[in-house]
Design a protein around this nucleic acid. Structure first.
Lengths: 111, 111
DNA sequence: CGCATATTCAACCAAACGGTTGACGATCCG
DNA sequence: CGGATCGTCAACCGTTTGGTTGAATATGCG
């Protein structure tokens, strides 16, 4: 269940949270290990993780004492898809693009 | 001059502001016309537009009484690019794709 | 000029945010 | 058992956010 764009974007709006997501790109991590590089308290990081989890950007799974944090790309994809409407970076219409290249190439070859 | 990801993402985190951006996809608009579909006051919309402008997601250009609002896709692209690091939804490498299609087509033609 | 239109400014408000500290509940381990 | 580790909860605090209203500032126009 992915969250709303409101929740996703506001979760992404904080640099600490973006840094956490980048760390989780490497591997799943325990809360304490996530917190290690930051100056702020463990409780603050725990809150950030809750916000990321509410945005479905991560999931948390408790095994023993350890609460494992795992990156969950689906929510980000949702935001990504919304953004595609804007500007020059739409996903390509591959078929159209292929026809275009084909026409271009055929022209060159026939020259 | 594009703004920081903090500013861009938090600008995108509000549904009113995302709706405004979607409207500006159609065409440039005056502040009053942007405000028309919304329940809230004109002043509130004016503030939202300021936030969008500070995020470089739009530009505003005053001509006479009218303050024209224009979508500015570069800032969104910045956020878009940041997101590419996460998950399976990277943009295509257009050059590589073109080479691929070219090779494919050339093959067909030489057959 | 004088009025209407377009937009921002300023003050205010309640709610949310991002952080702190200290206490608490689980779990592991000697 | 008892101590250490992992993590969250609760209360608190200052700042930011998203909205309001009313006044102020341009600009256009008859």
């Amino acid at each position: 269940m992915t969250a709303s764009l409101d929740i996703i974007f506001s979760a992404l709006a904080d640099p600490t949270r973006r840094a956490i997501l980048a760390m989780l790109l490497e591997d799943d991590m325990a809360v304490t290990d996530v917190a290690a590089p930051f100056q702020m308290s463990l409780a603050a990081i725990s809150k950030h993780l809750t916000i990321l989890a509410e945005a479905s950007l991560i999931t948390q799974e408790k095994r023993g004492r350890i609460n494992w944090c795992k990156l969950e790309p689906d929510a980000m994809r949702e935001a990504f898809v919304w953004m595609q409407s804007f500007g020059q970076f739409q996903l390509l219409d591959l078929d159209a693009f292929e026809r275009f290249i084909a026409a271009e190439l055929t022209g060159e070859i026939l020259d």
